[in-house]
């Protein structure tokens, strides 16, 4: 072993630290919004990404600092929350029901720290946690109705990442939308992948393996479905890839407007069921910054714009004016309470 090499290394290492110590200058402290993702990671093209978009929007609009920490496993939740508390974040946003225990424990141990959790509501409420829940089935109902009106094969499909309420609420709303279309028009469009009566359906049991999404989409297309709504985060992109490869079916995006967030697939995105966690997250950050933050829960609905369906974009010209008018009617019906959703999913 040459001692010279070691010497050079040591000098270099010391130089790095000395240099860095000099270069570091402290700026004025900004308001800090910090997001802890669940195990899906921040670029899951699904709810972690959407919630993070809310923080990024807040960064631009409110001139704040936004940070995130990805959780790789459940033991990371508490660690990451603690890291942000130590960092003196002004509000900590935890994303996903998996973080419900860790958020609750941290909120109770740090009553002056503001939290907001996405996709989970506490009962009873915790005074320093603002919970964000979503009546997603209202939007999915519209998407199901639109899909039933647009399908050429008379079959539409859906599948989920896992049989959990935040996923099945999409599938259930979708299937009920299709059923409503059948009742109105006397048609018999079939929903593959979710049985609204038995509450059972197709699941990949995986939120990360895109191949599983691809396989699922291929099976659904083989069964004749020409519009597919994958409710499985990034796994849905695998479905989009399979649909694009075959070229005779369409995808309904979830969580965000996939026409914008998945630009590779713009020519097969029929519409998207949007769950606007970015809007609610931005609101929560704004409230914390303005000093109007209050614990409790906000439920995103069609009425307050927390959920909705995306424009048809490329397919706008192909969707008939009657169908669009009917969709407006249904939206009004949902808002007025005339059209009822499944009470099991009431948020």
């Amino acid at each position: 072993m040459s001692k010279k090499v070691m010497l050079v290394m040591s000098v270099l290492l010391i130089a790095v630290f000395v240099l860095s110590a000099c270069a570091k200058t402290a700026g004025p402290a900004k308001f800090k919004a910090c997001e802890v993702t669940d195990t899906g990671g921040v670029d899951d093209k699904s709810f972690n990404a959407t919630a993070w978009k809310g923080a990024v929007d807040a960064k631009e609009k409110l001139d704040i600092e936004a940070k995130y920490l990805e959780s790789k496993e459940i033991a990371d939740f508490e660690k990451n929350i603690n890291a942000f508390i130590a960092e003196k974040c002004d509000i900590i946003i935890t994303v996903g029901f998996l973080l419900c225990d860790a958020t609750k424990a941290a909120a109770e141990a740090n009553p002056n720290q503001k939290f907001s959790i996405v996709d989970f509501a506490y009962d009873p409420v915790i005074p320093n946690v603002l919970a964000q829940a979503f009546q997603t089935d209202e939007a999915a109902f519209l998407a199901g109705y639109a899909a039933a009106g647009f399908t050429k094969t008379g079959k539409v499909g859906t599948f989920g990442g896992m049989q959990i309420p935040t996923v099945t609420i999409f599938m259930d709303g979708f299937a009920r939308g299709v059923r409503h279309y059948n009742e109105v028009h006397g048609t018999s469009v079939e929903t593959l992948g979710w049985d609204a009566d038995a509450q059972t359906g197709l699941f990949t049991n995986d939120f990360s393996d895109q191949q599983k999404g691809s396989d699922m989409a291929v099976s659904l297309m083989d069964e004749g479905a020409d519009i597919i709504m994958p409710v499985a985060g990034p796994v849905g992109l695998g479905a989009a890839a399979a649909v694009k490869a075959r070229g005779n079916a369409l995808i309904i995006g979830v969580d965000s407007d996939w026409f914008l967030t998945a630009p590779d697939y713009t020519d097969i995105i029929f519409t998207s069921v949007m769950k606007l966690m970015d809007v609610t997250t931005l609101d929560a950050i704004k409230a914390a910054k303005d000093g109007t933050f209050k614990g409790g829960s906000i439920v995103g609905t069609l009425a307050n714009g927390g959920v909705g369906i995306a424009p048809f974009h490329n397919f706008d010209g192909q969707v008939s004016a009657e169908l669009k008018a009917e969709l407006e009617g249904i939206k009004a019906g949902i808002l007025s309470g005339e059209i009822q959703m499944n009470p099991a999913f009431k948020q």
Binding site: A15, V16, F17, L19, S20, A23, K24
Partner: peptide, 13 residues
Amino acid sequence: LGTAFAEVGEAYL
């Protein structure tokens, strides 16, 4: 070069 080393230093610190 200064920024590069500062970034690395900050990260490793």
